[in-house]
Design a protein around this nucleic acid. Sequence first.
DNA 1: GCCAACGTTGGC
DNA 2: GCCAACGTTGGC
Length: 156
Amino acid sequence: MTKRYWLMKTEPDVFSFQDLQKRPGKKEHWDGVRNYQARNFMRDGMSVGDEVLFYHSSCDPAGIAGTASIAVAAQSDPTALDPKSKYHDRKASPDKNPWVMVDVKFLREFKRFVTLKELRETPGLENMVVIRRGMRLSIQPVQPEEFAIILKLGET
DNA sequence: GCCAACGTTGGC
DNA sequence: GCCAACGTTGGC
């Protein structure tokens, strides 16, 4: 299977790229996704080895901190079944849990944080999902050409 | 803190 | 199955 590219959003106050780097094995479960479109990307699209732009949202400035990879493909998300979790879904049950998570592994921190403003201004990124008005999807596909352009921005 | 955009919920 | 109300996201 060919490698795919993704963008994954997180609020750095909750879980940042630096937090990921500090985790054992630099890996963490990407749990708590409760949107079907994002779930479908994880479940149907993501494979081990896919590369991810790690996006910080709801902060100033918003933008991409670095890259990660998919370490484990979609698996059942146990937080949906945990009444104590803030991601608990009362409609989910062990034999019918609609929610999945993947494991994400820290790959490389950019030399330079690439802001959303810069994404908007960079030729070749005009069709990126993340710059679309009103776009709230927390997991988005990224074109290989877009990924390459952003890598170059982050490393120079 | 504002508010536009969007997804979800629930009454009918 | 429609759609108004509501809640959330997230840039500014």
